[in-house]
Simulated scan of single mutants.
Amino acid sequence: MGVFTTRRGRVRIWVYALAFLVLVPMCGLVAAMFIQPERFARDDGCVTAGDDGITNQCSRTVVMEACVSGDDGIRECARQEIEGGATIERPASLPAGDLQLAACHAPYLPAKVTSPLNLSLLIDGCRKPE
């Protein structure tokens, strides 16, 4: 008599329950990666702002969004595509201030999107281009 089987050779019910609890979420994750790839395209770690400009540290092309919040709370943003390993100048259309950077793998665009867990909540994410 083993841990996974009964005396009659049948698999114990907790093994089936455990397999169900592990396999169903994994199948959902894999399905979401194919059905909604924009949910997994966000990669803010690729872009950094320095003295020489904005650098893409990843090997993939990203679409970068740089935003500056004013004293009145209004955000001004500029989007630009950056090749892998390239550096660009700070967008001239943005006023002076601290840059808030967001990046998504091309062709997806940084945007506020609905949360998959709460449809009334907007989170930073990526969306498909129009």
Rank of each mutant, 00 (worst) to 15 (best):
M1A: 13
M1Y: 13
G2M: 05
T6K: 15
R7G: 04
R7Q: 09
R10M: 12
R12E: 14
W14F: 12
A17Q: 09
A17H: 08
L23C: 09
C27R: 11
C27N: 07
G28M: 07
A32R: 03
M33T: 04
F34M: 01
I35E: 00
P37C: 05
P37E: 03
R39S: 06
A41W: 05
R42M: 11
D44M: 11
D52V: 15
D52S: 11
I54P: 00
T55N: 02
T55G: 01
Q57M: 12
S59E: 12
T61M: 14
V62K: 01
V68H: 10
V68N: 01
V68D: 06
G70T: 06
D72P: 07
I74C: 01
E76K: 13
C77V: 06
A78C: 02
Q80D: 10
E81W: 00
E81F: 01
G84V: 03
G85A: 07
A86C: 05
I88L: 08
I88E: 03
P91D: 13
A92W: 03
A96H: 04
A96N: 09
G97C: 07
G97A: 05
Q100C: 04
A103Q: 10
A106F: 15
L109Y: 12
L109K: 08
P110K: 07
P110D: 02
T114M: 11
P116D: 09
I123D: 11
D124C: 00
K128F: 03
K128H: 06
